[in-house]
């Protein structure tokens, strides 16, 4: 049993080692377009996030993925509509105002208007809305997950403090793969 515990520890260590980031390789997989890859990442973020029960009216209430702005990634996200995550169907909708954003479960900021981002983030910061964007320094202005290219490979960083504040839960698996995690200030 001792060896098993040792193994567990080393696997955990391996998980954190993944944070260092290594050259991206797709293996023999058919290359995805950059937009498709971003969409796949978004879907994975949704997969590895837990919403509080009150966020959904019923167990089969669809999961609302909202797209703010209108850019190629937003178009690619439309492909996620109809996919199922934890028994919920994903619906994709385009939003423009903070009021609209309140009813979303996940919100992708597709444009690059940082000021608008800040105001909307503030509007939803206490709500269980997973905020994602590929704009620069997204997590520094109060976003939860930011996509970025590092070492010519798509990676992501997480502001865990914001995630926890909004009563969402990010899976440790996800956090392990993140390039960078901003921990809660309280800790």
């Amino acid at each position: 049993m001792h060896s098993r515990r040792r193994l567990l520890r080393s696997v955990l260590a391996a998980g954190s080692a993944a944070l260092l980031g290594l050259p991206l390789a797709y293996g023999q997989q058919a290359p995805l377009s950059d937009q498709q890859l971003r969409a796949a990442f978004v879907l994975n973020f949704i997969r590895y996030t837990e919403w509080p029960e009150r966020a959904f009216a019923a167990p089969d209430t669809p999961l609302m993925l909202c797209v703010l702005g209108n850019d190629p990634t937003g178009v690619a996200l439309g492909g996620l509509a109809g996919k199922t995550v934890k028994g919920r169907t994903i619906q994709v909708r385009t939003v423009n105002t903070a009021d609209e954003a309140r009813n979303c479960h996940a919100l992708f900021f597709a444009d690059a208007d940082a000021r608008r981002h800040v105001s909307i983030l503030r509007a939803v910061q206490t709500l269980p809305v997973l905020t994602i964007s590929d704009s620069d320094s997204f997590i520094d202005i109060g976003g939860m997950i930011g996509l970025l290219y590092l070492d010519s490979r798509l990676q992501f960083e997480v502001n865990l403090a914001v995630v926890q504040h909004s009563q969402l839960k990010s899976s440790s698996q996800l956090l392990r793969l993140a390039r960078n995690v901003i921990e809660s200030k309280a800790r």
Partner: peptide, 15 residues
């Protein structure tokens, strides 16, 4: 699982 989801072969190798 997560490494596969994110197609992160480096992370998978580390695992």
């Amino acid at each position: 699982a997560a490494a596969i989801r994110f197609n992160d072969n480096a992370a998978a190798n580390v695992v």
